[in-house]
């Protein structure tokens, strides 16, 4: 994929300088600190980072699903087909959610209602968004279950969520998310709670369905292995900011941010020897409640020099289609 040549009208979703804050009793957390990126039509974009980096908050900010009492988007834009979602009324936003942008979660029970059958829930979503008749919606529910390869869909439509296994519930949730043919599917750690053989099945399913339906996918995960198997482009987040953005091959071949490089090296890899010490990223993630001067990764960074501690690096091109927020990205890539 050659991102730098992509025409403007291929942009499906664009975030510009998005800032989200959480308000505690005595403190303010800058959960997102100026996030800008694009999702192209039909692409799979990975968003990776460790706990607290802001990847899930990004998803919830896009869909405006943040807790109303404690969180607020204080700046920036979320443009979907050019239209700023932050300016829509709640009613207009509800029309977008589930219809044009759908989301799946790590735990399917958060989005499945335990007191209704799977078939009923899928059919309901179809009816609300397409004004289809009940019988048409019911047939669609069955068709969706078949699409996500649930065996025996005629029978399964009348199952309740608790009658299904974890893997099957995840399939049902995907079926529900895709029932209205959304243009963008946001998947937040959809396979993290699953066993590896089931994870492999679900990943394969998401990739297949994406190819078949042309839906763009924003895939949020902490697992670099999952990203490598599913995504075309990747965004790496750290402490509420994007630190690197590249095609999947570029990112793995030559990471340009020391954090990305550190993450990759700290993963066990038998090719580099068993039972040896793994390269660590020393220290811990900074608190987002206190103001950060300079680069937020500088205290843990082996490349840090004076400028890193004084001035915040912005995302810049290190080569075509590959950006990094690091003063020393060129040296990092050579290391």
């Amino acid at each position: 994929m050659q991102m730098h040549q992509t025409a403007r009208n291929d942009v499906l979703l664009e975030l510009r300088d998005l800032e989200t804050r959480f308000y505690g009793e005595e403190s303010v957390t800058r959960a997102l600190d100026g996030i800008s990126f694009q999702v192209m039509k039909g692409e799979t974009l990975g968003v990776v980072g460790e706990s607290g980096c802001g990847k899930s908050v990004t998803a919830l900010s896009i869909l405006r699903l943040l807790p109303k009492v404690s969180a607020r988007i204080v700046g920036g834009e979320v443009r979907f087909h050019g239209c700023n979602l932050l300016e829509l009324s709640d009613r207009e936003m509800r029309k977008i959610r589930g219809d044009q942008i759908a989301m799946i979660f790590q735990e399917p029970m958060t989005s499945l209602n335990p007191v209704y059958t799977i078939g009923h829930q899928i059919a309901e979503a179809v009816q609300i968004h397409t004004k289809a008749s009940r019988s048409v919606a019911k047939a669609k529910a069955e068709e969706m279950l078949r699409l996500v390869r649930i065996a025996d869909p005629e029978r399964r439509v009348s199952n309740y969520p608790h009658e299904m296994s974890g893997g099957m519930r995840q399939r049902a949730m995907i079926a529900m998310a895709l029932a209205c043919s959304p243009e963008l599917l946001i998947a937040d750690e959809p396979t993290t709670a699953l066993d590896v053989t089931i994870q492999a099945q679900i990943l394969r399913l998401i990739v297949d369905l994406k190819e078949r339906t042309g839906t763009a996918v924003m895939f949020i995960t902490h697992d670099l292995g999952v990203v490598a198997e599913t995504c075309q482009r990747v965004i790496v987040m750290y402490a509420g900011r994007i630190v690197e953005q590249a095609t999947i091959n570029d990112l793995f071949a030559s990471p340009a941010h020391p954090y990305t490089q550190g993450l990759m090296r700290s993963m066990p890899d038998p090719r580099r020897g068993r039972q040896r010490r793994l390269p660590e990223i020393p220290g811990i993630v900074p608190s987002l409640r206190d103001p950060i001067v300079g680069c937020s990764f500088a205290p843990r960074c082996p490349f840090a020099i004076d400028i890193c501690r004084e001035k915040t690096p912005v995302l810049r091109d290190v080569r075509a289609g590959h950006t990094a927020a690091c003063w020393r990205a060129e040296e990092v890539m050579g290391a």
Binding site: Q199, A200, L224, V227, A228, E229, N249, F252, M267
Partner: peptide, 9 residues
């Protein structure tokens, strides 16, 4: 075979 491998190639 099912374990995801961090190698896109």
């Amino acid at each position: 075979a099912a374990a995801p491998v961090p190698d896109p190639t």
